[in-house]
């Protein structure tokens, strides 16, 4: 069985998914994901070029709500659930990536 995904790819995907992984985990995941993807080959190999994808099993449209205000949550309760807060806000370590 040849792994379809390399440890390098695993590390890239882990970065996208914000999961810190060790090198050992990267190798193990590469192998496990390889097995699963190998199994998914039956699907990947099908010729479905003239089939429309289904994103959702039911076909509803225009499910809309009225623009009417509802009560918000109690701020103290909301902030009490957070790991760190300061000055009525959620506190996070410094941000190195750019604003999107």
């Amino acid at each position: 069985m040849s792994p379809r995904i390399s440890p390098e790819q695993v590390r890239h995907v882990a970065k996208l998914a914000r999961l810190s992984i060790t090198d050992a985990e990267a190798s193990q995941l590469a192998e496990e994901l390889g097995v699963i993807l190998e199994h998914a080959e039956d699907v990947a190999a099908l010729d479905l070029s003239d089939i429309e994808p289904t994103a959702h099993p039911i076909h509803l449209t225009n499910v809309l709500r009225d623009d009417a205000p509802k009560p918000s949550l109690d701020r103290d309760e909301v902030l009490a659930a957070a790991p760190a807060t300061e000055d009525r806000r959620f506190r996070v370590p410094r941000i190195m990536g750019e604003t999107q």
Binding site: E86, D87, R88, R89, F90, R91, V92, P93, R94, I95, M96, T99
Partner: peptide
Amino acid sequence: RIHDADYSLVDY
């Protein structure tokens, strides 16, 4: 400034 900051606070 974003990159020189010690930490950040978020208001949703």
